[in-house]
């Protein structure tokens, strides 16, 4: 997105990982840019910038979004969770732990987005079938794993993730 000279700056209030922020943003700024550049939360990745790879997936008001496609201004008043907001202190979220234990990651670049999609899936459906898991992460590209161990990780997490 290009910055437009003289365009009005908008004030955005949002909650990210439980913390409230008020920020002045340019109209063209995306939620991804706000998260990475303004808040310095670089766990959320930019892969394609076109909503095709899912690396920038975050949870906005309970639903996953490609943060590269959401304007920062649209996130006004929203609750956002990023990968940095999943662990409870040193205690990892069950999905994070399952990805570690079951080899659900390799290079790690798609991992934050993948884990956010998995978490959102398990929040809605505590006991998904294989098919539902595949569907739940069908917007997230992974080139390293071939998805097999990601699916196994999410299945393993399903038993332990309820209520978090």
């Amino acid at each position: 997105m290009r910055e437009t000279e003289g365009s009005p700056i908008k004030q955005v209030r949002l909650t990210v990982n439980g913390k409230a922020y008020g920020l002045d943003v340019q109209p063209g700024k995306t939620l991804l840019e706000l998260i990475r550049e303004d808040l310095g939360l670089t766990g959320t990745k930019e892969g394609c910038g076109l909503g095709e790879c899912g690396a920038c997936t975050v949870i906005m008001d309970g639903k996953t979004v490609n943060s590269c496609l959401v304007l920062a201004a649209e996130a006004d008043g929203k609750q956002i969770t990023t990968i940095e907001g999943l662990a409870d202190g040193d205690r990892l979220h069950p999905v994070q732990q399952a990805f570690i234990d079951h080899g659900g990651l390799q290079c790690g670049f798609c991992t934050p987005g993948m884990i956010m999609s998995a978490k959102a899936l398990l929040d809605e459906n505590q006991n998904p079938s294989d098919e539902e898991i595949r569907k739940g992460i069908s917007g997230n590209l992974c080139r390293c794993t071939g998805y097999t161990k990601i699916i196994e990780s999410i299945k393993a997490a399903a038993g332990n993730a309820g209520g978090r």
Binding site: L41, T42, G43, T44, T82, I83, E84, L86, A87, L92, Q96, Q97, F99, I100, L105, G108, T111, P112, I115
Partner: peptide
């Protein structure tokens, strides 16, 4: 390196 990768 798994922990660093799952936490972002």
């Amino acid at each position: 390196d798994a922990r660093e990768k799952v936490t972002g």
